[in-house]
């Protein structure tokens, strides 16, 4: 076991997969000579050369499209989009091409691309660098969307995403790149599907994904001090969603909070609660609670930004509200 930062885990996954398979290439802005904005591809250019670690111009839609074209004939491109806000520029090639080519061709072709992109707020990056947008990708048929919460999954899920034959969107988070975790020295894979119970509990289920899992874990600790036992689920995959794990947990705890960093309308929480209504409505003892961002473009001002984005205390308060304690 060795402690690796999130960015180091991503780099290790790239390195191993590129060493194994010549068809694996990396593409993106500043990922090569500059080593990547978050260092996640550092050293790879020197090791694999400019043909396989490709510094692209600032042309998100078309370099993603080039990755898709290459993937259609057997390449395995790992595409970094520097911020999920910029991924909006690539929505045409991701949503209209990558997600639909297998279907439109009647299963003749597949598009095994991986798009890695950080989605989340950091510190005063303002409205155009703070989008989360997970809900936009999870609403698209033909994509897989995963949200590694730490280095263990960042490494293991990227390895799986590269091997998978589907287009996979990996949503990372600006505030997680330096997060550290012990991960095995030997090669391992973490599956792209399946939620994970990261803390067992019996009184309430707190559901998070990506960075919000950590808010849930922090809230669970506070609840424990109040004598409330909270179970925490990391969704891990937003498309598809593992409804079975959620159902089992809600049938055990009978109360639920969903923590999302995104705005609420048509969001992750809406989808999870709909699933709960359909799967285990009568197991609920209380109304499900959504903890989410304010429905505003993210403000620059630090005080306003803090007010717009949910934190661990908001999740804690949400749990108390669900349990009728406030």
């Amino acid at each position: 076991m060795a402690e690796l930062a999130y960015w180091e885990a991503i780099r290790r996954a790239h390195d191993e997969e590129m060493a194994r398979d010549k068809m694996v290439i990396a593409m993106g802005e500043d990922i090569g000579v500059a080593g990547g904005t978050y260092k996640a591809t550092s050293g790879l250019y020197e090791k694999y050369g400019e043909e396989r670690v490709i510094d692209t111009p600032i042309s998100e839609n078309s370099y993603t499209g080039i990755g898709i074209g290459a993937a259609m004939i057997g390449m395995r491109p790992v595409i970094e989009i520097m911020s999920i806000n910029f991924a909006l520029l690539a929505l045409d090639t991701i949503v209209n091409a990558a997600a639909k080519i297998r279907y439109m061709s009647g299963g003749q072709l597949e598009v095994p691309i991986v798009v890695r992109t950080p989605g989340g707020t950091a510190h005063q990056l303002a409205a155009q660098h703070s989008a989360r947008l997970a809900r936009m990708f999870m609403s698209t048929s033909g994509l897989r969307v995963v949200t590694p919460r730490g280095p263990l999954d960042a490494y293991g899920m990227l390895k799986s995403a590269i091997r998978s034959n589907d287009p996979v969107i990996i949503i990372e988070h600006e505030q997680m790149y330096n997060m550290k975790e012990e991960i095995p020295d030997e090669e391992y894979f973490r599956p792209l599907e399946g939620a994970e119970i990261v803390r067992e509990g019996s009184d309430i289920t707190l559901i998070g994904y990506n960075y919000s899992v950590h808010l849930c874990l922090e809230a669970a600790k506070k609840l424990e001090a109040d004598g409330i036992s909270a179970e925490v689920i990391d969704l891990r995959s937003l498309k598809p969603i593992d409804r079975e794990t959620i159902r089992k947990s809600v049938e055990k705890t009978h109360n639920v909070v969903i923590a999302e960093e995104d705005e609420a309308p048509v969001g992750v929480g809406s989808e999870i609660i709909t699933g709960i209504n359909e799967d285990c409505f009568f197991a609920l003892d209380s109304q499900p609670v959504r903890v989410h961002a304010a429905d505003v473009p993210v403000p620059y001002n630090a005080t306003l930004e803090k007010a717009a984005i949910p934190n661990a205390d908001d999740v804690y308060q949400g749990a108390l509200k669900a349990l009728g304690k406030i």
Partner: peptide
């Protein structure tokens, strides 16, 4: 034909 109809459980899971 939406996604790989015969995915490898090692990569896809579920967990």
């Amino acid at each position: 034909y939406v996604l790989d109809d015969n995915p490898d459980p090692r990569w896809i899971g579920p967990l």
